[in-house]
């Protein structure tokens, strides 16, 4: 088997006395889509945030592209260029136009040439159907448009791995499809992705593997089709039954 893009071993996380994540072991293959499922409060967001250093953790080892990750500010800042993340809340910078939002990372972090970065930005905007909105400010956009641009902003850094933390959870239903479409295209382009979502039909369609988290424990890590057809644990069965498809 090829080297996995990301390997998590024995990760432990607590806030003070509250133990949030217990002995997390997780392997994510290059080019695969992993969907992280679990009831709310199970630690999904915390886990995904540990993977790009927005949360620190007490112990455990991350290995990215075969390189062990030393969790300090400097490493994370480097690594975040390779690990893109999109959040649940629309998190565009309101003081910048759409284009400046997208170019901030490529120009200021990666010091790429403006012409080249801009060309890529425009191309990405076209792919998500928002080519006309370059000069708009975030306040002029709908929630769905903002989320698609937040995705473009992350992609503009040419990441190797993308984290999506419930990116459709705050959207009106009619906006959800457009955003999921973008994720679907990314999956087809073989982007490695870790997706937290409550859109179960989408999860079933897109997941190469499913990680099921409950109360901070990984209860299952199984291929997608198998999880939805035949979950191994009773907890996962109960969870699936409770969800709308």
């Amino acid at each position: 088997m090829a080297t996995p893009l990301l390997q998590v071993e024995h990760l432990e996380k607590s806030y003070g006395d509250v133990h949030i994540l217990h002995d997390i072991n997780l392997t994510i293959a290059t080019g695969s889509v992993t969907v992280l499922l679990g009831p709310s409060g199970s630690g999904k967001s915390t886990l995904i945030r540990c993977l790009n250093g927005l949360e620190d953790f007490q112990s455990g080892q991350l290995t990215f592209s075969g390189q062990p990750v030393t969790p300090n500010a400097k490493t994370w800042q480097q690594l975040r260029q390779k690990i893109g993340m999109v959040f649940q809340s629309y998190d565009l910078f309101p003081n910048l136009t759409v284009l400046d939002n997208i170019l901030l990372g490529p120009l200021k972090v990666q010091h790429r040439s403006k012409a080249e970065a801009q060309e890529q930005a425009v191309k990405l905007l076209k792919e998500v159907g928002l080519a006309d909105y370059q000069d708009a400010y975030p306040r002029q956009l709908s929630g769905g448009q903002k989320q698609r641009i937040a995705i473009v902003r992350a992609l503009a850094l040419n990441p190797e791995f993308m984290l999506f933390d419930e990116v459709t959870a705050s959207l009106d239903p009619e906006m959800v499809r457009g955003v999921l479409e973008v994720l679907r295209n990314l999956a087809q382009q073989k982007m490695t992705m870790l997706v937290v979502t409550h859109e179960m039909n989408f999860a079933r369609e897109i997941a190469d593997q499913v990680v099921f988290l409950e109360e901070g424990h990984i209860l299952e890590q199984t291929p997608g089709q198998q999880f939805f057809a035949n979950p191994q644990t009773e907890r996962a069965q109960i969870f699936l039954n409770s969800m709308d498809f």
């Binding site: 800042q77 893109g84 901030l104 937040a150 902003r153």
Partner: peptide
């Protein structure tokens, strides 16, 4: 979330201040 999304695109603390937090 603004600070976090700045961090998520790899901005340093100084860049975060200059382009996101101060404006």
């Amino acid at each position: 979330i603004q600070v976090e999304s700045g961090l998520a695109i790899g901005l340093s603390r100084g860049q975060l201040a200059r382009y996101v937090v101060f404006p």
